[in-house]
Every structure is written in structure tokens, then in C-alpha cells.
Design a protein around this nucleic acid. Structure first.
Length: 133
DNA sequence: TTTCTTACA
DNA sequence: TGTAAGGA
């Protein structure tokens, strides 16, 4: 499963292909790079080469923009995202899995409030961030 | 032909 | 963000 991730990270697409795949103009794609939202590599001829992950990222950026977020807002999203990944990684280094962490938090909340929250709330990873705000 | 940088009647 | 200019 680590093989695929490696290939998705390979920068092999010229900007023209990315334009067709994302329906964005070269101007926009280069602009988002300036904003550090994507980091394509340069080939021998100073040409930008993008990876499949870059394409995914650009498509995400389009969605966020539609949702009314501005560039700085999107930066904040990815920043918080990386922050959460770091925390997850640290917990992993301490031998704690995601489910372990959620169990611990659940126990703590039960003691504090004496209330037993819906298990679904803790079982859904998408709700995890609610306990890190 | 395609992409790059810079700049704005 | 679009588009033109001039080079690679």
C-alpha cells in the first residue's frame, strides 16, 4: 500500500495536462503554487511537473473556493490538517492508536460530566477534531 | 508547440 | 485573474 502512495507523489505531469484534469487556467495553477498550496518540481527545462497528489489538491482547492473560503482560509485548513497529523504521529510513537486515544478521551468525558455521549460520536473519526479545538 | 517570467492602455 | 510580450 506504500507503493501506490509513492507513485501518487511522482511529479510527471506537465501543466497542460493538469489544466485539462482540473479545469483550471495555468495562471491559477501557478498562483496557487505561489501561495504554497502545492509544490510541483521543476524538470531540466525549468518546466513545472505535477503529481497525482497535486492534482487532487488542486481539485480540493477548487471545492474550498466554491465553499467561499479564500486562499488564507485554505492555508489554515491544511495547516490544521498537518497539525492533527503530527499529533496523531506523536500518539503513535507513544504506542497509542487512534482508537486508543478516542477511548481515553471518552473515559475522561464520562468522568467529568457523568454523561455518556453517543458512542457514534467517538467512533466517527470525522468528529475527532471536535475534541481538539 | 508548450511553458516560463514579468508586467499592466 | 486575464492577457500580452519575448525568450527558451
Amino acid at each position: 500500500m506504500r507503493e501506490k502512495e509513492l507513485r501518487r507523489s511522482m511529479s510527471v505531469l506537465p501543466i497542460g495536462t493538469v489544466m485539462k484534469l482540473t479545469d483550471l487556467t495555468a495562471r491559477q495553477i501557478r498562483y496557487y503554487e505561489q501561495q504554497d498550496l502545492i509544490k510541483p518540481i521543476r524538470n531540466e527545462g525549468n518546466r513545472r511537473m505535477y503529481s497525482l497528489n497535486d492534482v487532487d489538491r488542486l481539485l480540493e482547492i477548487k471545492d474550498y473556493l466554491d465553499d467561499g473560503l479564500n486562499i488564507s482560509g485554505i492555508k489554515a485548513v491544511y495547516k490544521k490538517q498537518e497539525q492533527l497529523e503530527d499529533e496523531r504521529q506523536k500518539n503513535l510513537e507513544k504506542g497509542l492508536t487512534d482508537s486508543d486515544v478516542r477511548k481515553i478521551l471518552q473515559d475522561e468525558f464520562m468522568h467529568i460530566g457523568g454523561l455518556k455521549p453517543p458512542s457514534s460520536t467517538f467512533d466517527n473519526p470525522n468528529n475527532f477534531h471536535k475534541f481538539n479545538e
